[in-house]
């Protein structure tokens, strides 16, 4: 059983390293995600953010502009996830304590 698990792990690592041969080089400004326009010829999303963040949102920090303005729905969902995690901890652990007090 243990040998099968180790085999799965080695195969996983080997498969990922094999897949990495097709990845772009690190720091390549001309790779698909980093270059100026997408394969269809339209501007890439990061290109738009870098060029327009200052004039559209009056914010120098592009990451902040993306986080709160361009992708505000994403951050809204993330914050709801954080609140839900806090509420889960509250409900799981405090209800247990009050139950003990009753006994």
């Amino acid at each position: 059983m243990k040998a099968a698990n180790v085999l799965v792990l080695v195969a996983f690592c080997g498969l990922l390293i094999y897949a990495a041969t097709g990845f772009p080089n690190r720091g390549d400004a001309l790779s698909v995600t980093n270059r100026e326009s997408s394969p269809a010829g339209t501007p890439n999303a990061p290109t738009h953010y870098i060029r327009r963040a200052k004039e559209e949102a009056h914010t120098d920090n592009m990451v902040t502009a993306i986080l709160a303005d361009y992708r505000g729905y994403d951050t809204l969902g993330e914050e709801t996830v954080i609140l839900t995690a806090g509420l889960i901890c509250y409900l799981l652990l405090r209800r247990e304590r009050s139950g003990h007090e009753k006994e």
């Binding site: 400004a29 995600t33 980093n34 270059r35 100026e36 999303a45 990061p46 290109t47 953010y49 870098i50 060029r51 592009m62 990451v63 993306i66």
Partner: peptide
């Protein structure tokens, strides 16, 4: 664009 790293 190549002067700034990808912010996304």
């Amino acid at each position: 664009v190549t002067k700034y790293i990808n912010p996304l």
